[in-house]
Amino acid sequence: MNSNSEIKNLLQKFVLNQCTPEEINEVIAYYKKNKLTDDFPTVGDIQDLLAEMPKMNSQTADDIFLNILQASKENETTISISSGKSNFRKYISIAASVLVLFGIGFAVYKQNITDKTPQHKFDFKSTDIVLQLEDGNVQIISEDHTIQVRDSKGNIVGNQSGDKLVYENNSDLEKLSYNTIKIPYGKKFQLQLSDGTLVHLNSGTTLKYPVKFIAGENRQVFLEGEAFFDVAKDKKHPFIVNADKLNVRVLGTHFNVSNYPEDESTDVVLVEGSVGMYRSNEAFNADLNTILKPGYKGSFDREKDKIFTKPVLTDIYTSWISGGLTFRSMTFKNIITKLERRYNVTIINKNENLANEKFNASFKEESIEKVMSYFNDIHGINYTIKNNQILIK
């Protein structure tokens, strides 16, 4: 433990009650070495104290960490804590003293929190496609320009031109590292992964994926939103899409996954090949899990925690790639969300009776004006459009 970063990491573990006895010993050793007190608790005392504490999440730890660092900034070694948190008093006092000892200022806290939790949540209503790199830095992708994507060592691992980003497979990476791409409302994008897999990303979608797939490891990506996958065949390395509580496992095929937060289910539509569907907290078992056939849709009902399948016309569910838009037995409030995402508009519905009505509709590449005109002509839904805001009366 010879650097501020190592001390900072150790203290974070200390605040989160994650230290091993050996790590607690390190804290004690440094504390005693600098003679901040002669009455320092033993490892056993500290373990007893930690055992009495409630488990904390990251936000709670961040709040405590902030208080500690503010105290260290003001050169204090004690902190006033409300009676409801009296169990933390001795513990936080120790942590504060450690911070004072090593001079870790508020700037370190701020940088640490910035690294782990972005201060500005991604705004899907922006116009920027954002690529978050493995080190937390971001690059803005413009379809009118080109960029080069580099790994932590500065090596070029990908190139973007227009609406497509292509990753190379010649990187010397030996361990998994991830990039995350975020597609705003009103846009679509294409991503070619290092194995040659092509992914079409719909608007309002986030995909986390390895910069390079590693031999011996599954090819796993993490999806929130909607994407169509054209997976490169590799029998030795299954391709797995994690969609929250659902995993979709293939060896090489074409399929669509829709995993938007407002939907009741995560839907998988198989165009060709074979797809295994199973809960993300389970291991894949071909004999027990749902195996989807071409021309079928598998739906994971999040509330019932069950998977249902039925035959469908796959073109309906993949038409979005070429600009189509389809609603099947969908509530109007969900249709509004999808229209906002597709066209990057704001829709205000003052007709509350419409919210839970269900509709079927299909459109080719139409403007929002024509879509709203359809709902007015067929279903008598009155509305006005001003700038990018639609008011339903």
Results as ranks from 00 to 15, higher is better:
residue 57 N to F: 04
residue 56 M to I: 14
residue 75 N to E: 13
residue 74 E to S: 10
residue 73 K to S: 04
residue 56 M to Q: 14
residue 51 A to Y: 07
residue 39 D to A: 01
residue 63 D to W: 09
residue 75 N to F: 11
residue 73 K to V: 01
residue 51 A to E: 08
residue 44 G to I: 00
residue 46 I to N: 05
residue 53 M to Q: 15
residue 40 F to Q: 00
residue 76 E to P: 00
residue 49 L to R: 09
residue 67 N to Y: 09
residue 71 A to G: 14
residue 58 S to P: 00
residue 69 L to N: 07
residue 39 D to C: 02
residue 55 K to F: 00
residue 77 T to Y: 11
residue 40 F to A: 02
residue 62 D to Y: 09
residue 58 S to Y: 06
residue 50 L to A: 03
residue 71 A to E: 10
residue 63 D to A: 15
residue 45 D to R: 10
residue 66 L to Y: 15
residue 53 M to C: 15
residue 41 P to T: 08
residue 65 F to E: 04
residue 63 D to M: 12
residue 61 A to R: 05
residue 49 L to F: 04
residue 71 A to N: 14
residue 43 V to H: 05
residue 39 D to N: 04
residue 40 F to G: 00
residue 49 L to Y: 02
residue 52 E to D: 12
residue 49 L to S: 11
residue 68 I to L: 07
residue 46 I to D: 04
residue 49 L to K: 11
residue 74 E to N: 08
residue 54 P to Q: 09
residue 57 N to G: 09
residue 69 L to M: 09
residue 54 P to V: 08
residue 46 I to C: 06
residue 62 D to E: 10
residue 52 E to T: 05
residue 53 M to H: 15
residue 51 A to I: 02
residue 54 P to C: 10
residue 68 I to C: 09
residue 56 M to A: 12
residue 74 E to Q: 13
residue 48 D to W: 01
residue 67 N to D: 14
residue 46 I to P: 08
residue 59 Q to N: 09
residue 63 D to Q: 14
residue 43 V to W: 07
residue 74 E to H: 05
residue 60 T to V: 09
residue 59 Q to G: 01
residue 53 M to W: 10
residue 46 I to M: 12
residue 67 N to A: 15
residue 51 A to R: 14
residue 69 L to Y: 08
residue 67 N to E: 14
residue 72 S to P: 03
residue 60 T to F: 03
residue 46 I to K: 05
residue 62 D to M: 03
residue 48 D to E: 11
residue 57 N to W: 05
residue 59 Q to Y: 06
residue 76 E to T: 08
residue 67 N to W: 08
residue 42 T to L: 04
residue 68 I to S: 02
residue 43 V to N: 13
residue 57 N to K: 05
residue 50 L to Q: 14
residue 65 F to N: 05
residue 64 I to G: 05
residue 48 D to H: 04
residue 41 P to W: 13
residue 67 N to C: 13
residue 45 D to A: 11
residue 49 L to A: 10
residue 42 T to M: 07
residue 57 N to I: 03
residue 42 T to W: 07
residue 62 D to C: 06
residue 71 A to C: 14
residue 71 A to H: 11
residue 73 K to I: 02
residue 51 A to W: 01
residue 60 T to E: 12
residue 66 L to Q: 14
residue 63 D to G: 05
residue 77 T to A: 08
residue 72 S to E: 06
residue 40 F to N: 03
residue 74 E to K: 03
residue 43 V to M: 06
residue 48 D to G: 01
residue 53 M to S: 09
residue 39 D to R: 04
residue 51 A to P: 00
residue 69 L to H: 14
residue 68 I to M: 11
residue 49 L to C: 01
residue 45 D to V: 02
residue 62 D to V: 10
residue 73 K to F: 03
residue 62 D to N: 04
residue 72 S to D: 08
residue 50 L to E: 10
residue 77 T to D: 05
residue 74 E to F: 01
residue 64 I to F: 15
residue 54 P to G: 07
residue 72 S to G: 13
residue 61 A to W: 06
residue 57 N to P: 04
residue 55 K to Q: 05
residue 76 E to Q: 14
residue 45 D to P: 08
residue 39 D to P: 00
residue 58 S to F: 08
residue 77 T to V: 14
residue 57 N to H: 05
residue 51 A to Q: 11
residue 62 D to R: 10
residue 53 M to P: 06
residue 40 F to R: 03
residue 72 S to M: 02
residue 54 P to K: 13
residue 64 I to R: 12
residue 65 F to Y: 13
residue 42 T to P: 07
residue 74 E to M: 09
residue 67 N to H: 13
residue 65 F to V: 02
residue 40 F to D: 02
residue 70 Q to N: 15
residue 63 D to K: 14
residue 45 D to N: 15
residue 47 Q to T: 10
